[in-house]
Computed example of a mutant assay.
Amino acid sequence: MHKNFKNIGKVVFGRGSFSMLESILEERRNENNRFFLYVVDDFFNGKDLATRLPVKNGDVVRFIDVDPHEPTTEQIDELRDTVLKEHGLPAGVIGIGGGSIMDIAKAVSLMFTNEGSSTLYQGLNLVKKPGIYHLGIPTISGTGAEVSMTAVLTGPEKKLGLKCDWTVFDQVILDAELTVTVPVDKWLYTGMDTYIHCIESEQGTLNNAYSHAYAEQALKLCREIYLGENAGQNPENDDKLMVASMMGGLSLTYSEVGVCHALSYGLSKILGEKHCYANCLAFQHLEDYYGEGVRELKQMLTRHNVTLPTGLAKTWTDEQITAMAHVAYNLPHMWNHAIGPDWKEKVTIKTIEDLYRRM
């Protein structure tokens, strides 16, 4: 297996590096219709970060509430169509927020130059043309969306990413000072996304020296952050988690995720659960697949007084469980990595339904 993937064009890392945004954007401001589209988590509307945006005349700022639902194809199409109609083609898109905002920024940058609905491009290398310039600034660490070549969207038929080389950000700014407002439970859930990325990347058929190198270091950082002597939210650990998030994303890019992420997609598509939280809900019940990792995750939860609910499946209908199982089953790349090329001989819809019933 060989992957010829594109990495981020440029990276700025360090506390206070958000201040470089204006000078970075100036190099691009004369492109297309000479304005930037800022896509910002609504959490920051009216807060200090919003006042620090280097907005100039003609720039468009959209604050987007990502708490109720993850990004949808309909949302991306509407954002693109409205901006094009009212303002024209931006010089670039700047995404500021968590993983959902990163995915929105990546997806809409592609859809500005590709016709039709984003539902047409859910899958691998279906995008026809490069998107416009896009820059990501994560304000929470763990999803790896700042480095991945996928913009995950939920459509009317499936939850699946726009995945190609052009999805990858041209530039990212990694400033851990922007993560100080993250509450402890979300800090842990998103951090566990990095942790689970690496566990699944390591324990599968596509693991290799390249993916292992990133996963090994990211897991080391996660253990220091969540279980070490200085465990907890503090400036040193915030810096470490921002780096671990990027490394976890690079590890899975050259390997793959597995059983937990497949189940998580079903939880998100059918029940609307947020991705990182859904990963944690599923992972705690997968000891027969990822034994040591599951035991360690439970230690991290205990250390930080975070409790995940159990017994949820008792409230789900058989129809919901079957629907989730079909979503998960239709992610063959994940099952191939986790189980092997003969995974269809070992995993059925009923197998997956039983995994959901554990929850």
Rank of each mutant, 00 (worst) to 15 (best):
K240M: 14
D77S: 09
K346R: 15
M1H: 13
L297Q: 12
F13N: 06
I270V: 15
D288E: 15
L110Y: 10
I339P: 06
I270M: 11
D67A: 08
K129T: 05
N305E: 13
R303T: 05
E115R: 12
M324R: 06
F283Q: 03
T113Y: 04
T253Q: 15
L89S: 04
E202W: 09
L124F: 14
D170Q: 14
R29K: 14
D288W: 10
P156T: 12
I101G: 01
K350P: 01
L250S: 12
P54H: 10
E31R: 13
I64Q: 00
M149V: 03
C164H: 04
P332H: 06
D81N: 15
R52T: 03
T154R: 14
H2S: 13
L153S: 07
T310V: 12
G291M: 07
G131C: 10
G97L: 09
T119F: 02
N57L: 07
T139Y: 02
S251I: 09
K6D: 12
H261M: 11
K106C: 05
N336F: 05
Y214I: 00
R62W: 00
V180D: 12
L221E: 02
A176M: 00
P54I: 05
S100R: 10
I349Q: 13
S264N: 08
V243E: 06
W166R: 01
L79Q: 00
V66F: 04
G123E: 13
S245W: 09
L53N: 04
D238S: 14
C260G: 11
E236F: 13
E157W: 04
G293C: 11
I339D: 01
E202H: 05
L219C: 08
P54A: 04
V40P: 02
D185C: 05
N305Q: 15
G272Y: 10
I349V: 15
A325P: 00
F44N: 00
R28E: 12
T139M: 10
A328S: 15
R34K: 15
L126M: 13
E287W: 03
R52H: 10
Q122M: 14
D103F: 08
E157Y: 11
A50F: 02
M20R: 08
D318K: 14
E256H: 13
L219W: 09
A328F: 07
C276H: 13
Q320F: 07
L271K: 15
F112L: 11
I24L: 14
A209Y: 08
Y133G: 03
N4Y: 12
K159S: 09
R80Y: 02
P183S: 07
L21K: 08
K3G: 06
G249S: 11
L263Q: 09
G155Y: 11
I8A: 06
V39A: 03
K10M: 06
V147E: 01
F63W: 01
G258M: 05
R223P: 03
H333C: 00
Q217D: 13
A231T: 02
D318P: 08
F18V: 08
E70L: 13
Y290A: 05
G291A: 04
L25Q: 07
Q320I: 07
S23M: 08
V12C: 08
G136M: 11
Y195K: 09
Q233V: 15
E26G: 00
L84S: 04
L120W: 00
D65Q: 04
L178P: 03
D81C: 06
L120M: 11
V168R: 12
A338N: 07
E78G: 01
Y329T: 02
T51V: 03
T317D: 04
L21S: 07
S201G: 15
